[in-house]
Design a protein around this nucleic acid. Structure first.
Lengths: 153, 153
DNA sequence: CCGAATGTCTCGATGACCGAGAGGTTAGGG
DNA sequence: CCCTAACCTCTCGGTCATCGAGACATTCGG
């Protein structure tokens, strides 16, 4: 690894920086989860539900399972946990009464917005020191890296 | 979120791109874990052991626990699993015989290098389309973002 | 109206994790 | 040389997240 870092123009270093950043972002997730009595999966679930709600396409139990990669049995247990903790409500869909749509509670929506929204604002603020050209480079880079990662099997 | 995206020069979009990328990188970890009979934690452990070994400071059981945030009991179980699967060996430290240092097996080292090294090569290759200035912008940005994330409590 | 498809939940089993504490090892002071 | 405190790892018992299989309710097409 180190020995490769000679004539690559620092490209390997960027890969390592990226890994470091993802590790730290992971840690942030845990710092959010702990005080709220949530586990890893629960945070992913909450984020998925909030994202879907914001998109105006509320998640169903099944959709949540697909989103976070859980079996139906696990989704039931997961939603039980989140509901018991007051983070989501189960609501029977009016048009298809087999389905259960998940709604975030006001309080949890606010808590999530405060935590992650706060982080996002800090990140955006830290971008003030960058020119539009800088940020455009970053955007293209992030897009390229994501494509590689998605394609990697 | 969307409504903030008007006059920020795409900064929020970058934050979302970053999140997308971390999610995909997470998925890569799982694609590595599954076929090798490993769990989430196991992969983190293997990476920690490989990193430490490369640094020339082999991890002990206790060090591994600190690195991945597990109790000593869990570390024992974790190392049991990895050892049973043939990924690591327990070796009593010669100078301090209380300690157990962990060594990756040749085979697993090779498998890890093939998988993650391969991904790294693809990432580096995808950076060919970027100028040195581009990459310098990216480097500064990654560094700045990491600082924000680390500082966020 | 009936059967197949669909969405969610229940049950029992498995495995990862933790807290408490046992057991062996080292270092330092009488 | 021994005793004790500190240290590192492992064992034990319990808790919780997850899964596979299948039950139950609902919808949809013929």
């Amino acid at each position: 690894m180190v020995e490769v870092a000679r004539n690559d123009g620092g490209r390997v270093e960027l890969a390592l920086l990226l890994r470091r950043l993802t590790v730290e972002l992971d840690a942030v997730g845990e710092r959010f989860a702990k005080p709220h009595g949530l586990g890893r999966t629960d945070v992913r679930a909450v984020i998925a539900i909030m994202d879907a709600t914001r998109r105006g396409e509320p998640l169903t139990a099944g959709g949540l399972g697909a989103a976070v990669g859980l079996s139906s049995a696990s989704v039931t247990a997961l939603v039980d946990r989140l509901e018991r903790a007051g983070h989501v409500h189960r609501v029977r869909d009016a048009t298809d009464r087999r389905r259960v749509v998940l709604q975030m509670s006001e309080a949890s929506m606010a808590a999530g917005a405060a935590f992650f929204g706060g982080l996002q604002r800090e990140l955006v603020a830290a971008m003030d020191g960058f020119s539009d050209d800088d940020l455009d480079s970053v955007r293209r880079w992030l897009t390229a890296m994501t494509e590689v990662v998605v394609a990697h099997r």
